[in-house]
Design a binder for these strands. Structure first.
Lengths: 243, 243
DNA sequence: CGCGGCTTTGAGGTCGTTCAAGAGTTGTGG
DNA sequence: CCACAACTCTTGAACGACCTCAAAGCCGCG
């Protein structure tokens, strides 16, 4: 059977039948390489495709009329991206590769067939989408009601926990692979202020850095500062239909 | 056939078979009245239920450790609420009635059965969840990257457009039914500053107010100020399986 | 009529921004 | 393998958008 990044990811949450795995693998039949900085989807473009991200990192973002950018989400391998195009014929957000990536595009109609034939997979996608929504609300609360330092702390913890889902080798450090400007655009700050916060947290011994790598020295305290809760630990899909 | 608020809502986007309508109606078999201010779901409570909101208004929110509140979403009749409990056994957000309301709770397992038997409905729920996610990203961009005035403008327009989906009588005004503090908690401002912005917009002739009712005098300009786009106009579900 | 909640307004403070410039880093082509 | 260009990070100084605190007016309701 073809390897499927996405099926592997789902299977960590809930057992999948071979038929389901095979169906999911079909979504990844057309891998496409894209260079760092390459545009995968441009806002307002007519879109009929979705993607599974197999390798590398991708961000979704919007540019406001005054030129400022809001990064909506950073995606990692195994993520299902561009799902907004299931409801809108024009992309509400842009997608750009943050590193060299491999994405697997597939057509809306392939998704339709999948949903028809594998209701359980449809249910799973529904749930996954809800998880994304909750992740969004966490960041919404951070932007609306927390300090710059808290936002940086929770942002780092979120990246860390999400990376650890697919990479068991991660213990207490990870490659951020984002500029401070990109961090700022994710959490509603300027790059200048992100720098000051990171620097301050470094001086306080909360984190360390060595050539782009972030080391989380005091996770408990970071969680406190960022009002962070790891949602990934609380996922409960036991009630789902068994295959 | 029993009336179903939710089915009616969905049917505006895409035709439903009678069987599907009937199945959706079953979700609303247990209407429950709740008084204004009543708690429907408390954060961290163990939850096994979801709700269809049949009448009135509900908000979802979180309280941060310092006591500040972030309102995540205001819901209107026909909305599907509490769907986070499909993935988490503990509620990630609280739900409170903003007015006297009628909600229809149903168990996760009823949803499971629905998803199994009506794949097309599962697909629809998946799409609806994606729409919520996009609405969230719009607000995220507003909180992260726009001014107080822009946030108020886009907030008012969003309420307006969402109310108009189910209430054809709305032309250019609507009852907000929110205090200025609640508006502030929705868009990451203090009630004091919300007041100043509203007042300023009133003086500029952009809006008017009369006993709690908001009149939008210059929608074009409000959209410009708020960088607002009405997502509801662009929904395209033609590609969905036909029933 | 009086009470509690909401709105309005002012004065002063702060957190994060803006602008600017220098140091460090990375990538590229000769 | 070096030189140069283009980013990225770092730091300082000044500014301003929004907050905090406080008090007074208003409105609906019992």
């Amino acid at each position: 059977m073809a390897t499927s990044c996405f099926a592997e990811r789902l299977a960590k949450q809930v057992p999948l039948s071979d038929a389901e795995k095979k169906a999911l693998a079909r979504l990844e039949e057309n891998p496409r390489k894209i260079k760092r900085g390459g545009m995968i989807q441009r806002v307002n473009d007519t879109v009929t495709e979705l993607f599974v991200l197999r390798e590398g990192r991708v961000m979704s973002f919007v540019i406001l009329p005054d030129g400022s950018r809001q990064i909506l989400r950073v995606y990692f391998p195994g993520d299902f991206i561009g799902s907004a195009s299931t409801i809108y014929s024009k992309a509400p957000e842009s997608l750009v590769a943050l590193s060299d990536v491999i994405v697997c595009p597939f057509d809306k109609h392939a998704l339709r067939r999948l949903l028809e034939e594998y209701p359980r997979v449809a249910a799973l996608l529904f749930l996954l989408s809800n998880a994304e929504r909750v992740a969004m609300t966490d960041r919404l609360a951070a932007l609306g009601r927390t300090s710059a330092k808290a936002r940086v702390a929770s942002f780092l913890l979120d990246m860390f926990d999400r990376l650890r889902v697919t990479d068991d080798s991660i213990v207490d450090s990870f490659d951020l692979k984002l500029t401070q400007e990109e961090i700022g655009d994710s959490i509603g700050l300027t790059s200048v202020h992100v720098n000051r916060m990171i620097r301050q947290m470094e001086q306080e011994g909360l984190i360390s850095r060595s050539n782009g790598r972030i080391i989380l020295n005091d996770m408990a305290r970071l969680e406190e500062i960022g009002h962070y809760t790891n949602r990934l630990k609380d996922i409960d899909l036991d009630w789902l239909p068994v295959s």
